[in-house]
């Protein structure tokens, strides 16, 4: 399931982009080091395969719903984790750009949720461990099923965490978790089964293809761990930093203001507070997440549940009127700049 730009905060988006960008750089380096010329076209073409394969649906018996291949796991089996991660990233990128699936800021989250867990966790730590060096049908099925389920459970958990941390959706953590994990158990089983079946198909038709890949050395474990921990730390740091920057009490000044000044004074829009709030509003790139919005923040006491709405007739009506006017202006501008549609 794709995270969407509409649901994430800049802090979460930036943190996940940091982790993802780091992994892309790292994987690119690894792919370059491996210097396997054959992989240059193979990666791209397999990406196109996954893209096409995702559009082919099959009916899941007795449910009336349909399933399709996700792709991260099968890519890892065919290409190894680094190349597979890059390919998965590009599949998601094309989906974001052409179909608007997710969006560009959420792309970092999506690549991480769907690429990282299947390529760097499920494949090396589960699939490889179960299948080992001498693949049999039973091992491949067991390995793919376990890896598919765990990969998607982690991915779904990622979506839940990212959504909850972003705070745009009202869904509480527990409810959302209970909603997402079971759905993704089903999706994970489908993914594992399809992956196993397709791998078996290739294995029976052309065993030499898979044996070439399974000779691949399961990456210097230590190396990978260090790098992943590094990226996660960086991501947490950046995410944390940004959300601190965006938090409602960046320096305690504003908070102290609330504490010391009386409610009446605030409601009468004390001159100094207005100035300060304006300064804060203008300097902070990120908004106040803790409060409903700055209007609310400035008129309600911090001890009171900040969700309590402050109804400001003036502002909302002004917004309504001004918004309508601006819409009109924008469309007039658009009309003015309108170019004859060359392609119809």
């Amino acid at each position: 399931m794709h995270m969407a730009d509409a649901l994430i905060s800049p802090a979460v988006g930036a943190a996940m982009w940091t982790a993802t960008a780091g992994l892309i750089v790292f994987s690119s380096k690894k792919v370059k080091q491996a210097a396997d010329d054959r992989k240059v076209p193979l990666m791209g073409v397999l990406g196109a395969f996954i893209f096409a394969a995702q559009m082919i649906n099959f009916s899941i018996p007795a449910t009336g719903s349909s399933g399709h291949l996700g792709g991260g796991l099968i890519l890892a089996i065919l290409l190894g984790p680094y190349a597979a991660f890059l390919v998965m990233a590009s599949v998601l990128m094309v989906q974001a750009l052409f179909f608007g699936d997710g969006g560009l800021l959420a792309l970092g989250c999506n690549i991480f949720n769907l690429g990282f867990f299947s390529c760097f966790i499920a494949y090396p730590l589960i699939y490889r461990k179960i299948v080992g060096d001498k693949p049999t049908q039973g091992k491949i099925v067991a390995g793919a099923l376990a890896a598919g389920i765990i990969g998607l459970q982690l991915g779904a958990f990622g979506v839940v965490l990212e959504t909850v941390f972003s705070g745009i959706s009202e869904l509480p953590f527990k409810t959302f978790l209970l909603l997402m994990q079971p759905i993704h158990l089903a999706i994970g089983i489908v993914e594992g089964m399809v992956t196993a079946a397709v791998v078996m198909f290739v294995y029976q038709a052309r065993p030499e293809i898979l044996s070439a890949v399974s000779r691949f050395k399961p990456i210097g474990q230590l190396d990978l761990k260090k790098v992943i921990v590094g990226f996660l730390l960086a991501a947490v740091f950046i995410g944390g930093g940004l959300s601190w920057f965006a938090s409602s009490h960046p320096d305690g000044l504003e908070w102290a203001m609330f504490k010391t000044s009386g409610k009446e004074e605030l409601e009468s829009r004390d001159q100094m507070h207005t100035v300060l709030a304006a300064v804060q509003e203008k300097t902070a790139f990120m908004p106040d997440y803790g409060f409903k919005n700055t209007e609310v923040a400035s008129t309600s006491e911090p001890e009171v549940k900040p969700a309590w709405p402050a109804i400001d007739f003036g502002t909302s009506l002004a917004g309504f009127v001004g918004g309508g006017l601006i819409f009109l202006i924008i469309f007039l501008i658009g009309f003015g700049f309108r170019r004859r549609e060359v392609i119809t």
């Binding site: 892309i24 690119s28 370059k32 990666m43 791209g44 990406g47 890059l86 590009s90």
Partner: peptide, 15 residues
């Protein structure tokens, strides 16, 4: 990184 961009290029071509 170049390896990523190159494979994006191949990907789009064969898509």
């Amino acid at each position: 990184p170049k390896p990523f961009v190159i494979q994006l290029m191949f990907f789009y071509r064969y898509l």
